[in-house]
């Protein structure tokens, strides 16, 4: 898993690459939290290179989402691969998150 971010005053764009699973979700969570210290109203999670996600990963997404809503912000997911999108659909997360192609 690799994470890269572009921080502007309006939004933070986080590029997620690789797998988020039970072994590395903690790592992912702390990395994202660190980026989110630069508080912006909008966070875009670019998932173009996200190849795999398990329920542990989904939970982190949910945690971040809740955090953003709590702070009056917004989390946008972008460019989900079909297999990832399927998981979001099944879990009902598609209706929770704002997902852009």
């Amino acid at each position: 898993m690799n994470i890269a971010s572009q921080v502007t005053s309006e939004r933070i764009i986080i590029n997620v690459e690789g797998r988020i699973d039970t072994t590395n979700y903690g790592e992912f969570e702390s990395a994202v939290n660190k980026i989110l210290e630069n508080s912006t109203p909008e966070v875009v999670m670019d998932c173009t290179a996200l190849s795999y996600i398990s329920s542990s990963g989904l939970r982190i997404f949910l945690t971040i989402h809740k955090k953003m809503i709590g702070a009056g912000g917004k989390l946008i997911l972008k460019s989900l691969q079909p297999s990832i999108r399927e998981i979001f659909d099944i879990s009902g997360f598609s209706s929770i998150f704002t997902i852009n192609d």
Partner: peptide, 23 residues
């Protein structure tokens, strides 16, 4: 888990086994 709930009300657990069943 109730997948129709809004984000604020969603629980963290129970998701894994639910995914298994669904997939």
């Amino acid at each position: 888990p109730d997948t129709t709930l809004p984000a604020e009300k969603r629980e963290i657990g129970g998701l894994g086994i639910f995914l298994i069943k669904k997939m």
